[in-house]
Each structure stands twice: as C-alpha cells, then as structure tokens.
C-alpha cells in the first residue's frame, strides 16, 4: 500500500511482535539490543505490513462518519455486495526481500507498482481473480530497505 510517511516506532514494534506471539527481546529491549549483533531494536520480518496504519485511505479501517461493512446494529453497515467483495478478497502470496533491517527512528515511504492480473477456475471458491502488487519501502535517505511482493485473490464465493 502506498504511504508517504511510515515512522517506525519502538512501541509499535513491541505491539506487533506481541501480536505474532514473538517474545524475542530484540523487538522490545534496548539494553539487550545494544549488546546484540544488530546493535539496535529491529522490526519483525513481516512488520512493514503495518504500513496500513499510515495509509489515510486504507479501506480496511473504519473511519468516523463513513459507512463500515462490519457489524453494528445490523450484521453489516453497508449493502451486502460491497461488504461481500471486501470479505472475498484473500491474500494468496506474500514475499519480502530485505535489503536492510529497519528499526525505531526509520521513517519509511512506500510506493506500489501494480503487477500482473490473471484468472483461474478454483475448486472451492468458483472463479478466482488474482492480482500482483510490488511495494518498495525506502528509508529517510531514499535507500531501498524492503521490497514486498503480494498476490491477492478475489473469490466468487466464500472459500471453505
């Protein structure tokens, strides 16, 4: 996802590591990190996925005053079809290339380049529509730090 400013913060790294059940002190303990090979707290391998937090238009985050397809008084706050499409978008593949490991203090920017799209008949989900996206994460000096390639799929009906 494209973002102009993704400040990498120690507290965010700690929360992210907790969420993936990783108690490794390299993700939270400055003293431990100083005496380790990296010398600094680093982010877990999949952390840049959290750049979604810094995309102002990210569609999978509720925003004040806007319809949200999750439940409230009703099972969905938007007409069925809209929520249905979002719910049928699944992640098919994710690849990362690490040029440097990032840590607190880095300020990243991300640019996405749409890749190939293709269709395939699925066994369980009906027609599958695939799309590829390459995101380049650069640091405050413009250096490429992580290249991410993701493949998304939209299924005709809920996958089992």
């Amino acid at each position: 996802m494209p973002v102009d400013q993704f400040p990498v913060e120690a507290g965010h790294i700690m929360m992210f590591a907790r969420a993936v059940g990783d108690d490794n002190p390299i993700y939270r303990d400055d003293v431990h990190a100083k005496s380790s090979e990296t010398g600094i707290i680093i982010a877990p391998p999949t952390f840049v996925q959290a750049s979604a937090q810094f995309d102002p238009d990210y569609r999978l985050r509720p925003k004040p005053g806007e319809p949200w397809f999750g439940s409230g008084r009703e099972p969905s706050g938007t007409p069925d079809t809209q929520g249905g499409t979002a719910a049928r978008g699944l992640h098919a593949e994710q690849h990362y290339e690490y040029h440097r490991h990032i840590g607190p203090g880095d300020v990243l920017s991300a640019k996405s380049i749409p890749g190939k799209t293709w269709e395939k008949q699925g066994r369980r989900g009906g027609l599958l529509k695939f799309s590829e996206n390459v995101t380049e994460y650069r640091d405050q000096n413009g250096e490429l730090v992580i290249t991410a390639r993701s493949i998304g799929v939209i299924t005709e009906k809920a996958a089992e």
Binding site: R18, L60, K157
Partner: peptide, 22 residues
C-alpha cells in the same frame, strides 16, 4: 490492532457468519 488490517472477517463474528458466509 497492530497491523491496522481491521477487515471484520477476522474479528466480527456477526458479520462473518451472517454476511460473508464463513
């Protein structure tokens, strides 16, 4: 919360069972 991906299919049982069909 940590990743920022709040797609209700992951957290909202009401939505996911009645609307998304999982």
């Amino acid at each position: 919360g940590a990743s920022g991906d709040y797609n209700p299919v992951h957290t909202d049982n009401e939505y996911v069972t009645k609307v998304a069909g999982y």
